[in-house]
Design a binder for these strands. Structure first.
Length: 418
DNA sequence: TCTGGGGTCCTAGGACCC
DNA sequence: TCTGGGGTCCTAGGACCC
């Protein structure tokens, strides 16, 4: 059996843990640059604030309904997530951390356990240990545990836990679930399926394998089998990432290549830091730039460039050099750039590096990067920078409603009066 | 005027190789 | 008039997830 543990309204709940006066009040958490809503408490959902709502369009609604608005505080959410995952790992040797607020547990060898009781105890322990409410779905396959989780979340009388352990329950649950709410069926697929008269998850499982594969590729077919109760999707080992990206939208458009170069360099540095944390080297790097797609009145341009590195590297200096070469090859003057990013891929673990006969990553960088990482860890991000990076002012996102770093900065730890 | 960021997997077409 | 087959790599894009 698989259990899916999913935090309820995770970012909003994190804010609430340290501001309990907000219990029962509408909360919205905004994306970077305070752009759009990425998390909402139940109360905010009830007011009619959709996922992804642009903040500037909903400003009046926020004010009128006294919505408590927060800028995304990823240090806080990441730290709370680690605490929750660490608790969950006590409950099964096989855990897949699926996202910041979700984890699958594989319950192999739990035949003689009362799984409902087990789930209730997990739920209680997480809430006691962190203050975050969670819902738990248990079923014979991953995608069915997603379905069970949805039922647990939707119906409060379940006590936040739902178990699909019979064929009867499986079919009932699938008939209840609208096709667009199936894990792996997004907007585009749902529209196409509705047009075929497929309205529920159950209908989807009744389609022929051949048709599903033709229309939705092997991915859709796997999903169909998994929903039918045949375990097809297994826990993914996501310890090591396959890609690492740093991308940003700019508050103001950028037109000059020097400014863009500074941003790209900073993104490349950030990617290399993440790569070193993963103890890997990369063999490929990609840079992309594009104009603001929302501005239909402006000429649009978007382009990316992949560079295959002549040798594996995780040195900030080297990755910045390659990123700049890539940028220069795709930059066209005359456009207003709104967004850019650096992606790295094709990783190898640091202990499996094949040396190149002619050219290798500068061996001196290894020690240098260690020192830089150590200094930045201790004194704050970006304290030590490359000279190509902005020295005068650190680029700032709009973050007007940032809550304190309650769990990761000593000055921000709350004081309790006894 | 303002409308996020970081991932995954799959497919298709063109250029090129032998 | 007739003009192969089997690959790889790269670029781009589409779909999905949270």
């Amino acid at each position: 059996m698989f259990a899916l543990i999913d935090c309820n309204n995770f970012y909003a709940s994190c804010e609430r843990v340290f501001a309990p006066n907000l219990n029962g009040k509408p909360i919205v958490v905004l994306s970077n640059n305070d752009g759009c809503a990425i998390a909402r408490s139940n109360e905010a959902k009830a007011i009619g604030i959709p996922m992804g709502a642009p903040a500037f369009e909903f400003k009046d609604l926020f004010v009128n309904h006294k919505v408590h608005v927060f800028s995304a505080n990823f240090s806080l959410y990441g730290n709370m997530s680690n605490r929750i995952m660490s608790i969950l790992s006590e409950y099964s040797p096989e855990v897949e951390i699926y996202s910041i607020d979700e984890a699958f547990l594989k319950l192999k060898g739990f035949e003689y356990f009362n799984l409902l009781d087990y789930a209730y105890s997990i739920r209680k322990r997480v809430t006691q240990g962190t203050g975050i409410p969670v819902s738990i779905g248990i079923a014979p396959t991953k995608s069915l545990s997603k379905v069970a989780n949805r039922i647990a979340k939707k119906y409060t009388q379940t006590g936040g836990v739902f178990l699909i352990d019979t064929e009867e329950k499986r079919i009932k649950a699938l008939k209840w679930l609208a096709i667009e709410d199936v894990w792996g069926i997004g907007r585009k697929y749902a529209t196409r399926l509705r047009a075929q008269g497929v309205n529920t998850a159950y209908d989807f499982t009744q389609l022929s394998d051949a048709w599903v594969k033709k229309e939705f590729s092997i991915v859709g077919l796997r999903l169909k089998r998994d929903l039918s109760g045949i375990p097809t999707l297994d826990l993914d080992d996501v310890q090591a990432k396959k890609n690492i990206a740093t991308t940003r939208s700019f508050e103001k458009n950028i037109t000059k290549i020097e400014d863009l170069k500074e941003r790209i360099a900073t993104f490349a540095v950030s990617c290399s830091e993440k790569l070193r944390k993963q103890k890997s080297y990369c063999k490929m790097l990609m840079v992309f730039i594009h104009t603001n797609g929302f501005r239909k009145d402006l000429p649009q341009y978007s382009r990316s460039r992949v560079i295959k590195l002549p040798f594996p590297s995780n040195s900030s200096i080297e990755l910045v050099e390659f990123a700049c070469i890539a940028l220069e090859s795709i930059f066209i003057a005359g456009y207003s750039y709104k967004k850019a990013g650096v992606l790295i891929m094709d990783f190898i673990p640091e202990n499996q590096i094949q040396l190149n006969f002619f050219q290798n990553s500068n061996p001196k960088h290894e020690g240098l990067m260690k020192v830089i990482d150590k200094l930045n860890n201790r004194f704050g991000q970006q304290k030590v920078r490359l000279s190509i990076q902005d020295q005068k002012r650190v680029w700032k996102m709009k973050q007007e409603k940032l809550s304190p770093l309650y769990t990761t900065r000593i000055e921000d730890v709350i004081t309790i009066q006894v």
